[in-house]
Amino acid sequence: MYAKFWLPFLLAATPAAAQAQPTAAAAEQPHILAFGDSLTAGYGLGRGLGFAPQLQAALRRHGIPAVVHDAGVSGDTTSGGRARLKWTLDGLPRNPDLAIVELGANDMLRGVDPAVTEQNLDTILAELKRRGIPVLVAGMLAAPNLDPRYRRRFDAVFPALARKHDAALYPFFLQGVAGNRALNLPDGLHPNFEGIKRIVTGILPAVKRVLERQPAR
């Protein structure tokens, strides 16, 4: 059942959700870029129910008036993310105070060599570092039915790159959600509103820690 959870992320090809549009007054508020695939794009969910809007709402409940930009593209791989990173950043009103990088699940589903995944993510993190943008790496874990050697190589990519680039790490973006039907859409595979809520609750402390380390604007 757990292995089947990953299939839609390979097949999904829906447009990315619209980015949050900050007002002029929000220009000096913390800006966060959610850069990922269907998990950050809010696959199968209505407007305002995906990861970016839920994270923004959670931060504001905690007294952080952040603007979270949704840059999730369903079905995206690390190669796709690498190709679109620069124009995504250039389209923002300013450099974000944090980039959450959540990519890799589709590489794993397609059997991409983890060395290729690592190279793409390394390039993404290097570009963010070059621009002075702090990063939170949202890690992925390979499906447990895959070859153990592949799993070890794939799972090791995310913590290794976080260490290399001195980035924060959230080890598994789907912690507590993957394979849990109560936290997925009716197909039993994609995170529903409650599933995204669980993801946000899990990652929120790591997001706050990175933001708290940034100098006030």
Rank of each mutant, 00 (worst) to 15 (best):
M1T: 13
A3T: 08
K4H: 08
F5E: 03
W6I: 13
L7V: 13
P8A: 07
T14E: 14
A20V: 12
Q21P: 00
T23I: 02
T23C: 08
T23M: 07
T23Q: 13
A25L: 15
A26H: 05
A27H: 15
A27V: 10
E28H: 12
E28L: 15
Q29R: 11
I32N: 00
I32K: 00
L33G: 12
A34M: 12
F35S: 14
G36A: 07
L39Q: 07
L39E: 04
L39P: 03
T40C: 09
A41G: 07
G42M: 05
G42K: 11
Y43S: 04
G44Y: 05
G48Q: 11
G48E: 11
L49S: 14
L49R: 12
G50Q: 10
P53Y: 02
P53T: 02
L55A: 02
L55E: 01
A57Y: 13
A57P: 14
R61I: 03
H62F: 02
G63S: 04
I64S: 01
I64M: 07
P65D: 00
V67W: 00
V68I: 04
V68M: 11
V68E: 09
H69Y: 15
D70F: 07
D70P: 11
G75D: 09
S79I: 14
S79A: 15
R82L: 15
R82Y: 13
A83E: 14
A83W: 11
L85W: 01
K86L: 14
G91C: 04
R94G: 13
R94P: 11
L98I: 06
A99G: 14
G104N: 06
D107L: 11
L109G: 15
P114S: 13
P114T: 13
A115E: 12
N120H: 14
N120E: 01
L121T: 03
L121W: 00
D122E: 12
D122L: 09
T123R: 08
L125Y: 09
L125M: 14
L125A: 13
L128T: 03
L128D: 04
P134W: 00
P134Y: 00
V135W: 03
L136Q: 00
A138D: 03
M140C: 09
L141A: 04
A143N: 08
D147Y: 03
D147Q: 09
D147M: 05
P148C: 15
R153S: 10
A156N: 05
A160M: 12
A160R: 14
R163S: 08
K164P: 01
A168C: 07
L169D: 11
Y170N: 02
F172G: 05
F172Y: 15
F173T: 13
Q175R: 14
G176S: 06
V177W: 09
A178K: 09
G179V: 03
L185Y: 05
L185F: 07
P186Y: 06
G188M: 10
P191Q: 04
F193L: 08
F193Q: 10
E194Y: 06
I196G: 00
K197F: 01
T201P: 01
G202Q: 03
G202C: 04
G202T: 06
P205E: 15
V207D: 02
K208Y: 01
R209F: 01
V210E: 07
V210A: 10
L211A: 05
L211F: 00
E212G: 04
E212N: 07
R213D: 15
P215Y: 02
